[in-house]
């Protein structure tokens, strides 16, 4: 459906995108995950035809996205990171304008607008000025504006920036509905939770390059440890060498800070009983046990040596 092939873009000496390639199949949702400045937005801009790549090309159904009036652009719906709406106009007038950009008017436009507003739950606010909307409502309208021409590929550039959790959930529900309708979604974010919830596949981008491109499970498999066991010891000072736990089958590493013992396991169900037994028999009583699942933050940290949010 969508192919990005060797995309490169530089601004003077600053290389924003350095040979990014990936493919997205019809109906698939991929997440472009990376810290701010990783090159996600530049990549999306090249896919949408806003920027001409210095090298490489974008293909939609095998046709290159080049030229201003290329009909292939009708297959793309862009949801920009900015709230690209006219605040001074009612929601309906905004949508009529954006429909007209794709030569949609009259009854056809009304039907498309109705459906888009219905999807994002703003039908009853159609005649209100956008300036009166909350941030979350504007985000939803921003999404609706990209759906009017029924694109097969939706490019979502951090569509939940600055919204409250409730609105974020509403947007996610909308995206899941679109996904269920067979739309191809390219979702850029630096929120790992969003990518984890929505995406079939994750393309991790850093410094303008693809660091990893895999399913969530595939990415987790790359981790040396997939789970972390957290044990609160009654007296941590009695455990002089936590690395001795590596002798227990399935344990990758262990760390003791105060009374809190962290143990990284290859597999939680296989490794946890052995660790608890080792502690009990070794005279290290504990009063609380919990575990942490692996996440994309861990994956990013492992692959780049840096935190997603701190980069």
């Amino acid at each position: 459906m969508l192919q990005a092939q060797g995309l490169k873009k530089a601004y003077g000496k600053l290389v924003a995108v350095d040979g990014i390639s990936f493919e997205v199949n019809k109906g698939e949702t991929i997440g472009l995950l990376g810290p701010n400045g990783a090159g996600k937005t530049t990549t999306v801009s090249m896919i949408a035809g806003l920027l001409a790549p210095d090298a490489g090309q974008v293909l939609i159904d095998g046709k290159p996205v080049t030229g201003d009036t290329n009909p292939v652009k009708r297959k793309i719906g862009l949801v920009p990171q900015d709230l690209a709406l006219y605040d001074e106009l009612p929601a309906l007038a905004n949508l009529e304008l954006f429909a007209a950009l794709y030569d949609i008017s009259g009854a056809k436009a009304s039907k498309a607008i109705d459906a888009a507003l219905e999807l994002v739950g703003l039908r009853d606010r159609a005649k209100d000025k956008v300036a009166t909307f909350s941030g979350g409502m504007k985000r939803r309208l921003n999404l609706a504006a990209a759906l009017l021409h029924d694109p097969s590929v939706l490019l979502l550039d951090e569509p939940t920036v600055g919204v409250d959790p409730q609105s974020r959930n509403a947007i996610f529900d909308n995206l899941e509905t679109l996904k269920s309708r067979g739309k191809t979604l390219v979702y850029t974010t630096h929120y790992m939770e969003e990518a984890e919830r929505l995406c079939d596949r994750i393309v991790i981008v850093d410094h303008g390059r693809v660091v990893a491109n895999d399913t969530l499970a595939g990415l987790y498999r790359r981790l040396p440890a997939t789970n972390k066991l957290l044990i609160d010891l009654v007296d941590g000072s009695k455990l002089s060498d936590p690395s001795a736990l590596k002798a227990v089958p399935g344990v990758q590493s262990a760390e003791l800070i105060g009374n809190r013992l962290s143990v990284w396991l290859k597999d939680l169900s296989d490794g946890a009983p052995g660790v608890l037994a080792w502690l009990a028999t070794g005279g290290h009583p504990f009063d609380h046990v919990s575990s942490e699942a692996p996440n994309l933050e861990t994956v990013f940290l492992t692959l780049t040596g840096r935190s997603l949010r701190d980069s």
Binding site: A48, G49, D68, T69, D82, A84
Partner: peptide
Amino acid sequence: QRGLWKRFASAPLSK
């Protein structure tokens, strides 16, 4: 600045 140009430029419109 508001990103509206992105919407215009992503549509099949001539300059």
